[in-house]
Each structure stands twice: as structure tokens, then as C-alpha cells.
Amino acid sequence: MHEMSIAINIVSIARKEAEKESAPSISMIELEVGKLAGVMVDSLQFCYEAACKGTLAEGSELQIIELEGQAKCMQCGNVFTIDSFMAICPKCDTYEIEIIQGKELRLKAISINEEGSSHV
């Protein structure tokens, strides 16, 4: 269940950013997750809610943007979409590829409420 430690990291990064802005609360966290990142999105959503409890992000929403996997063939340079690590270059049939996208786990942005606002 590393999703729990990841959720805790997410909330902790977001909290630091919100504190810099003296925001009373966080309403949304935007996260990019590559399809090959090794993270289960459902499980992450579930743990996220728990990780938010008692923090500035309590009750906030986790918006997950899933990123396609992309690979570059090391033989012919072809760039193509992949959905698993066991991908093959469609041009030259080789497994010698380099994954160039799909392992991301990036906190993109947070939405904060500002002082004086009410969030019912």
C-alpha cells in the first residue's frame, strides 16, 4: 500500500504551498499520473481522503490527469504510444526501447481558498 505514503506526500507538498500563500484551505489538487507510474489511481483516491483528514486539504478533491505511456525506439528512433512495459517498436519489432513518458507522478497545481471566503 505505497499509495498511502504517496497520498501523504501529495498532501504535504500541497500544504507547504498553501501555507506560503497563507491560505486557510485547499479545495483541489491536480496530479499527473503516468500510466506506467506503478500507482493505482483508485487506491490513491481512497488513501488521499484519509491523508487529507485534519489538514488544510480536508474535504478537497484530487483531480488526476492520466498520462499515456510513450516510448522511443533505440534502433530507429520511432516514437510511439505504449500501454505496458513490454512494448515493441511497431516499425522494427525490437524491445530495445526507451520509455520517455508515462512514469510521471507530478503535483501540477493546487486550488486554494483565500481568507474571507467561505467554503460550506
Binding site: E21, L107, A109, S111
Partner: peptide
Amino acid sequence: GRTIEVEQDV
């Protein structure tokens, strides 16, 4: 509400 760019690896 306001959105802040964070762009950090989790």
C-alpha cells in the same frame, strides 16, 4: 479561489 502552479515530483 485561486490556482497555484506547483509542478513538483511527488
